[in-house]
């Protein structure tokens, strides 16, 4: 494993499989235990450096670090010296001077974790940077698929929706390709990036045609906060063409699953009855996130000298 986890491409097939296997062992070791805590990272400090709002990712990383007995410091840009104009670099160096061993960073600027990784000695984990990557989300999605379907090799995954703004899609495409799955992206042409032709994916504009051939449907959130232009005529029209409702769900294979990284816009990209159906892994994904992030923190920090 490399020292940092910045993008899905940092993991080759062996590393990615090691993370998933480690997460499975941790899951199994902690299942049904009274004391859901391991002493592995005692004395290490993990800083959650969040420049963007987040509920599940920050809590998930916090819980993962705490279950491994690391000390956790939560830093959010609101209410910190960032509002006095402190730069990312100075903030990171300040945190490291106080003895942080790993920085989990979320930032609205794509590439911020890469810059950070050059400035600090500890490990940097990307928890989402702009429209670039969110590698631990891709790992927990792959873990969820493997648990539900028993394999990743040859699994047909449809990633549907706002691919243009989605770091989840970018990380998933990279990681799923590494692990041997076949990915099709489905989106209106305005929500696909210019360079999509160079990605290892099939491209489709017709959701109804893709669904019967998919083992996994991954719905993406329509990211209204990143849309400063009109990418589609109206929410209703988007929902009609690219939303997953009960009728579309009935086109799926019997064993196919429906995923969503959250937070959901119910009624927009996914209908409530789909989100709450037995095919949906949305709640499972959140639970798996903690195990996968424990595996990542263990593999990145376990063998290092403390700062």
């Amino acid at each position: 494993m490399k020292r940092h986890l910045l993008e899905a491409a940092d993991l080759d097939r062996a590393d990615a499989t090691l993370v998933l296997d480690t997460a499975a062992q941790i899951d199994q070791a902690l299942a049904g235990r009274e004391v859901k805590k391991l002493p592995t990272l005692r004395g290490r400090t993990v800083v959650n450096l969040f420049y963007e709002d987040s509920t599940r990712t920050r809590i998930s990383f916090e819980l993962a670090a705490k279950r491994l007995s690391a000390d956790v410091i939560n830093f959010s840009a609101k209410g910190s010296s960032v509002s006095k104009g402190e730069s990312l670099k100075d903030t990171a160096l300040t945190l490291e001077a106080m003895g942080s061993d790993a920085i989990v960073v979320r930032h609205s600027a794509s590439g911020a974790p890469h810059r950070l990784a050059h400035w600090v000695r500890g490990s940097v984990v990307n928890a989402g940077d702009g429209t670039h990557e969110h590698p631990t989300q891709a790992l927990l999605d792959a873990y969820t698929i493997r648990r539900r379907l028993g394999r990743l090799e040859g699994v047909r995954v449809a990633i549907v929706g706002d691919v243009l703004h989605s770091r989840v899609a970018r990380s998933n495409i990279g990681l799923l390709h590494t692990l041997g799955a076949e990915v099709t992206v489905v989106a209106p042409p305005t929500l696909l990036p210019v360079g999509v032709g160079s990605w290892p994916v099939e491209v489709s504009y017709d959701l109804d045609a893709v669904l019967p051939k998919a083992d996994v449907v991954m719905m993406l959130r329509v990211q209204a906060e990143r849309m400063n232009a009109s990418f589609f005529p109206s929410a209703r029209e988007y929902s009609r063409r690219y939303g997953l409702d009960a009728r579309r769900m009935s086109l799926l294979d019997d064993d196919a699953i429906v995923m969503h990284p959250g937070p959901m816009n119910r009624g927009m990209e996914i209908a409530a009855e789909v989100a709450d159906s037995v095919r949906s892994t949305i709640v499972e994904q959140v639970g798996n996130g903690v195990s996968v992030r424990m595996a990542v923190l263990y593999l990145l920090l376990g063998g290092n000298e403390p700062a």
Partner: peptide
């Protein structure tokens, strides 16, 4: 019982794959 996550020499010997418990 896999003891990897309880070892005190992870820093000296590096992390390794876990075994089932």
């Amino acid at each position: 019982v896999d003891i990897t996550l309880y070892r005190d020499d992870l820093r000296l010997r590096g992390v390794r794959a876990l075994e089932p418990t």
